[in-house]
């Protein structure tokens, strides 16, 4: 097992992405909106394609703006379907994300001549190419891999967002009515959270792909949630899991020569199912505690 700079960079990027996703995911989990996060990460696709088409580059601000707008649009559409048209929540989510994702795929096929986006790349990205995709300034200064910078910026923004709005986010997650009563705009906070989720999806989709962003949004927070109750320990544990997932995922993928992002998710899944086995409810006799007198009598 060699530790070279490339490996270190990939692990660093993976860890940054999974920590940013995990932090946002904790709040999605507490709001019981994990599936909305899933929907958003699918729904940003048309925004990415249109942004790409308009600007001609995958690295432009337009792509991020497009994705952000689509992310917000999908939240609003789910809400409208549920409240205005009175469709039940799970169906509103299902209809919204499938429609927007389908439009995204169609747009990719329509603009195939101009947009160098691969359907597969959108779905499961490729973090392994990261070391060759360098950010070189106009004077030829090599600053290292571009995606690592993006992930770092994303991490910085997400942490800043959560640090600054910590009180608002936790209050609206736990008691929306109370937070509205003391004057916190719950809807605004919600939209801000959703925009951060969309932004994180765009900034990570090149490296881990849209669906794996979902995994990182949902699985580490759910795993951590099985172990702890407090919000701060939850965030800490999620971050620790993110780092662990990145390291193990990289080396396992390296070992069997597969997609690194996919392997990161598989590792996260192993942690998740392991925790569920340990922390899940087991029948009394498997736990080894002495049976109650009533059960002996019957």
């Amino acid at each position: 097992m060699t530790v070279d700079t490339n490996a270190l960079l990939i692990i660093l990027t993976g860890a940054l992405i999974s920590i940013s996703c995990g932090f946002l995911g904790v709040f999605l989990l507490l709001r019981k909106m994990s599936m909305t996060g899933d929907a958003i990460s699918h729904a940003v696709l048309p925004g990415i394609v249109i942004g790409y088409f308009v600007s001609g580059s995958q690295r432009s601000v337009e792509v991020i703006i497009g994705a952000g707008l689509l992310g917000i649009l999908s939240t609003l559409m789910i809400d409208a379907l549920r409240k205005k048209a009175k469709v039940q929540l799970d169906a509103s989510i299902g209809i919204t994300f499938t429609l927007l994702f389908a439009i995204g795929i169609i747009l990719i096929n329509l603009f195939a001549y101009k947009v160098d986006l691969d359907q597969e790349c959108v779905l499961y990205g490729e973090i392994a190419y990261l070391p060759i995709d360098l950010w070189i300034t106009q004077n030829g200064l090599n600053l290292g891999p571009r995606i690592t910078w993006l992930a770092g910026l994303n991490f910085f923004l997400v942490s800043g967002f959560i640090y600054l709005l910590f009180k608002e986010l936790s209050l609206t997650s736990f008691d929306e009515n109370f937070s509205s009563a003391i004057g916190i705009p719950a809807k605004g906070v919600n939209l801000a959270l959703m925009s951060m989720v969309s932004y994180t999806t765009v900034s990570s989709f090149e490296s881990v792909g849209a669906i794996l962003v979902v995994a990182l949004l949902v699985v580490p927070p759910s795993t951590a949630y099985l172990w702890t109750k407090g919000l701060i320990p939850l965030l800490r544990l999620t971050a620790a899991l993110g780092i662990l997932i990145a390291i193990l995922g990289y080396y396992l993928a390296f070992w069997i020569d597969s997609s690194i992002a996919g392997m990161m998710v598989a590792v996260a899944g192993a942690f998740f199912f392991g925790s569920a086995l340990i922390k899940g409810k087991w029948p009394q006799m498997l736990r080894g505690t002495s049976p109650s007198p009533e059960s002996l009598l019957s």
Binding site: L29, K32, P221, S222, M263, A266, G269
Partner: peptide, 16 residues
């Protein structure tokens, strides 16, 4: 969160 977890974990393994 169970559904989202199952969905993404299996899909991740599938991609591997």
């Amino acid at each position: 969160s169970i559904i989202a977890s199952i969905l993404s974990i299996f899909f991740g393994i599938g991609i591997v």
